[in-house]
Design a protein around this nucleic acid. Sequence first.
DNA 1: TTATTATATTGCAATATTACGATAAATAAA
DNA 2: TTTATTTATCGTAATATTGCAATATAATAA
Lengths: 107, 107
Amino acid sequence: MGVSKSESFSVAHNEMANLFKALSHPARVAIVEYLLSVDTCICGDIVEVLPLAQPTVSQHLKELKNANIIKGSIDGTAICYCINPDTIEIIEKYFGSINQQLKNKCC
Amino acid sequence: MGVSKSESFSVAHNEMANLFKALSHPARVAIVEYLLSVDTCICGDIVEVLPLAQPTVSQHLKELKNANIIKGSIDGTAICYCINPDTIEIIEKYFGSINQQLKNKCC
DNA sequence: TTATTATATTGCAATATTACGATAAATAAA
DNA sequence: TTTATTTATCGTAATATTGCAATATAATAA
């Protein structure tokens, strides 16, 4: 019991759920919005912006990377993070499609 | 410690994270897509569609309701669930705005 | 080489989530 | 009233997530 039965669901449902899970923590939402707010992708100061310790921030960045929501490229000793526009577009289109389908409904 | 430091983040970041958390499980994604697939909102057969026991489905429905992603209205002994278009639109616009901001960027 | 700097990993404690059997609650039908 | 039917809640076990100190890794600078 208690085990997440993700294998019982379709790959598509799991993929969407994983995208949302990556954004299901305020720290990760804050990271995405911070990456949006800075001019360039070059930014190694995310730890300074968040009220969390460096290992915790590193962990959150890893989850966003694993979900393909952000990309990181090595720049000497620092790492440059930026948002992956492809993934954002996938999510936007997903909700756009839901909205479209809702327009042909009674609710 | 392990306690989620959600109070350390803005209300806006928490609100968006809570929306995504509601959709961060394949069962809840499946519920949303099932509600989209049926003609009317009148549906008391969600349990039949999912590979989960009735109390588990009830719990997932509760989380979607709490996040305002679905609405439920009592119809005799059954409950009619349907998607809340307002919340879907909030999410779509959120990603639309991110996409817009990304267009003016180097990445 | 030895610092220094930036990020990642490990290990662990605290908490949250997931799942379901048992049971309760509420309404409808007999 | 009694009996179905439908959904919700309780209690609990299994697992996942969150957070951070300590430490490791990797690249640069001195």
